[in-house]
Write a protein that binds this DNA or RNA. Structure first.
Length: 707
DNA sequence: AGAGTGATAATTTTT
DNA sequence: TTATCACTCT
């Protein structure tokens, strides 16, 4: 095993010691993940730590997936049982918190956009009060503030909302963390359940590894400290790559973690070498974060870097900075460059386009599709999950399922604990003409009678409803549409996913919803988008149906598990797409953290004028191995000129030899092919109609098939 | 009424 | 960094 450098070995060989901290500072391309994996291997094979005593966590799904994916291969040569290795706990912080909370409370709901929109309707109508919000995001922020400061602000309106959320088990992601911490603090020693997840966290684990510590933020601190206290804490990260500052200050939680264990058992190590990027790219990136190139003097004499592990040699090609007046020009530049690259033996899968926003990526994706260039969006969630219309359908299912359950518990009226209320409020306020005033009046009336909204609507005669005539009609329509599903338990009897979906869609379509939930009307592109999303959800429903255990109704099973199942399904789908001719990867800079690509296009879009965050820019740049293009970057350190047309890169023999060697590809046949490549490129360029704005898409598709 | 001031959001993730 | 809102002052 001479895969590691001395500085990496130093980390791996650091002995196990309870109640200690090992902090590893690992810059981009320094082999952080590899070191982490070998550290785990070392713990199991040398230090005799059992796999089930190791807990690894990180903030993003991608980082966690990355580790899980590679764990097995690292253990391949050791004589450890595969099933045994799977005992290693590997979670996102929120995934872990979710697991704890669900184990202790049963099914919960994470609030989404549609939920906040519903809650907005419960606010007083006056526009001049502090309760008036421009968007649901402001409300989200205020509620967060309220929860953070406890009741200190004493805002009765927000307090009411929070109470409603509590009763309906509706949580924000921050709530997950707080609640998880609460359950970990409880003493479970008297409890008879012998091995719950909560207890495992309290007792079983000996070593906790944190990947990407720079992503942690203060509100996670209480949970993380309680998990790590007394264990060996090993954390990897790089403050320069801290791009989640908008969630809270990273240094605050880091100082807490640094002081978790006594000074004498806290060690800081550093991984030096950058094996990823060319000196040209590193130089520019280091300049961005005001840091000279990796200095020789920081390497002490016990850590001499052997000559075969020095950084990469110069590639002879500088990162290209370009600016454009409009989005079309930028797109054209990117497509033109891609064409040049593809004609120079680059594969589609070598290229990544990184941007700061998802919306800009969507724009770029449409451009690529126009030119028939294969692409793939790297997203942890499929698109349909943040489609409001889909969220609405899911909420209708929730209403049916929850209200139907509560119907049976009618006798045991245990106070205001009606989980269905939240989903009812959300769905009802999506109806056209049902405004804040009616929702509030109705909700108040229910509170007076101490009934759930559904019970109120079905039991109290409608002349008592505190509503205007036209609203009454609308609400009656709502009730009667849902009546069969709930009162006759139809929702639980529908065993066939497609029947359920059809039924729910029928309800939605007869409700006369607000335009925002029905964007599909009159817009064919949006309609086909909705169709695709619906089909994707239907697929997950079918999968869910196939693994449903007996003794539970399909809706219930689906609602409880659809999130996890979707993630698994989505991941499998993405993996599937990587085979074949390859695809260009589209990703936000945030999602691309931890990944690397031979060629990177970094773009800021042209619409927004506010500058790029320095660390985000740094992360984006350091994703590139060999070639970096930066478009329309707004940053003090970047001076970009309007780009002039050049096909220089195609004839750069030295670079292409370098490139193929870097990727372990044969250069046979690539040399002397410049003439042929150029001919191919010119042909494509003509057909694409570059420098004449957009061309017709049909001819492009035809041409690209020949590549 | 219309000009001027000051505060703040826009974007990124987590089930 | 810019756009927009709420509010104040003349």
């Amino acid at each position: 095993m001479n895969k590691l450098t001395p500085s990496q070995w130093k980390v791996v060989n650091r002995p196990y010691e309870p109640a200690s901290t090992l902090k590893v500072i690992a810059g981009p391309g320094s082999g952080k993940t590899l070191t982490l994996l070998y550290k785990v291997l070392h713990l199991v094979t040398v230090e005799n730590i059992k796999p089930e005593e190791i807990l690894i966590f990180s903030l993003t799904n991608k980082a966690v997936d990355n580790i899980i994916e590679n764990l097995l291969s690292v253990f391949e040569d050791s004589h450890t049982d595969r099933d045994n290795i799977k005992q290693i706990g590997c979670y996102t912080v929120h995934g872990l918190a979710n697991k704890i909370v669900v184990e202790n409370e049963g099914m919960i709901n994470i609030i989404e956009e549609i939920g906040w929109r519903g809650l907005m309707k419960l606010l007083p109508p006056s526009k001049r009060t502090p309760h008036h919000f421009r968007s649901y995001k402001e409300l989200e922020k205020v509620v967060k503030d309220y929860k953070l400061n406890g009741g200190r602000k004493n805002n009765p309106v927000i307090a009411k909302l929070v109470k409603l959320m509590d009763n309906c088990k509706v949580m924000t992601n921050d709530d997950l963390i707080i609640r998880a911490k609460k359950y970990l603090e409880l003493d479970h020693s008297q409890s008879d359940t012998s091995s719950s997840f909560t207890q495992d966290l309290q007792k079983k684990y000996k070593v906790v590894l944190i990947d990407e510590f720079q992503d942690l933020y203060p509100s996670l601190a209480p949970l993380i400290t309680i998990i790590c206290k007394g264990k060996q804490l090993i954390m990897f990260g790089d403050t320069n790559q801290s791009i989640y500052e908008f969630l809270g200050n990273n240094s605050h939680i880091m100082s807490q973690l640094d002081n978790l264990h006594p000074k004498h058992s806290t060690t800081v190590l550093k991984l030096f070498d950058n094996f990823r990027s060319t000196p040209e790219i590193i130089s520019l990136a280091s300049n961005i974060i005001n840091r000279p190139l990796i200095e020789k003097q920081v390497i002490d004499d016990t850590d001499v870097t052997p000559s075969e592990l020095v950084r990469k040699l110069p590639s002879g090609v500088l990162p290209q900075l370009a600016s454009f007046d409009n989005l079309a020009a930028e797109s054209e530049f990117i497509v033109d460059k891609i064409t040049q690259l593809i004609c120079s033996s680059v594969r589609f899968s070598d290229i990544a386009i990184l941007s700061r926003t998802n919306s800009h990526l969507t724009t770029l994706a449409n451009v690529l599709r126009k030119y028939g260039i294969p692409y793939q969006k790297l997203k942890s969630q499929p698109d349909w999950m943040d489609d409001l219309r889909i969220q609405f359908l899911l909420d209708i299912m929730k209403v049916c399922s929850l209200a139907s359950d509560e119907k049976h518990s009618r006798e045991f009226n245990t106070g205001a604990k009606w989980q269905s209320d939240f989903s009812i409020l959300v769905t009802m306020s999506a109806i056209k003409g049902v405004g804040d005033a009616s929702i509030q009046a109705l909700y108040k009336a229910c509170g007076l009678k101490n009934l759930s909204i559904w019970k109120y609507l079905t039991m109290v005669p409608n002349f008592e409803w505190p509503l205007g005539l036209s609203i009454k009609k609308k609400i009656e329509n709502y009730t009667s549409n849902l009546y069969e599903m709930i009162e006759n338990d139809q929702v639980h009897q529908l065993d066939d996913p497609m029947e359920l979906l059809e039924k729910v869609s029928n309800i939605a379509s007869s409700l006369n919803l607000n335009p925002i939930y029905l964007q599909s009307i009159g817009d064919s592109q949006s309609l086909s988008e909705f169709k695709t999303h619906l089909q994707e959800m239907a697929q997950v429903m079918k999968v869910s149906k196939s693994n449903k255990p007996p003794g539970i109704s399909f809706v219930k099973w689906f609602l409880e598990t659809y999130f996890d199942q979707t993630m698994v399904f989505h991941q499998a789908n993405q993996a599937l797409q990587t085979t074949g001719p390859g695809t260009i990867k589209l990703s936000t800079i945030h999602s691309a953290k931890g990944l690397e690509f031979p060629i990177v296009f970094l773009t800021n879009g042209n619409t927004s004028n506010f500058p790029m965050d320095t660390n985000a820019l740094y992360v984006g740049m350091t994703r590139a191995r060999n070639l970096l293009y930066i478009c329309n970057m707004k940053h003090q350190k970047i001076v970009s000129k309007p780009s002039s047309y050049s096909k220089h890169i195609m004839s750069n023999d030295f670079f292409w030899t370098y490139y193929n060697k870097d990727l372990n590809r044969s250069t046979f046949g690539a040399k002397m092919a410049y003439g042929y490549n150029l001919q191919r490129y010119n042909h494509l360029r003509k057909n694409f109609g570059f420098y004449r704005a957009y061309s017709s898409m049909n001819c492009c598709k035809r041409i690209l098939k020949r590549i």
